[in-house]
């Protein structure tokens, strides 16, 4: 296992694995951001927020 050249210290993940973990993080952030944006627009319309 330790002879695998792809392993990136300190996580022990290979580059492909690390990129996949990263993609989950990016996708999650995008979904979260879009939902938050939409929620803010709706709150602005439906509550006294922003007058």
């Amino acid at each position: 296992m330790s002879d695998n050249e792809d392993k990136v210290w300190p996580t022990g993940l290979t580059l492909r694995e690390a990129e996949e973990v990263h993609s989950y993080l990016i996708d999650g952030t995008r979904v979260f951001g879009l939902i938050a944006l939409l929620a803010h627009i709706l709150v602005a319309y439906t509550t006294p927020w922003l007058g």
């Binding site: 979904v31 879009l34 939902i35 938050a36 929620a39 709706l42 319309y45 509550t47």
Partner: peptide, 19 residues
């Protein structure tokens, strides 16, 4: 991903219903 979709739907749902 399914969990994120379900969470996102519920997160905007109450304001959407009020609108």
């Amino acid at each position: 991903k399914g969990t994120l979709l379900q969470w996102g739907g519920f997160a905007i749902m109450p304001m959407a219903l009020l609108a």
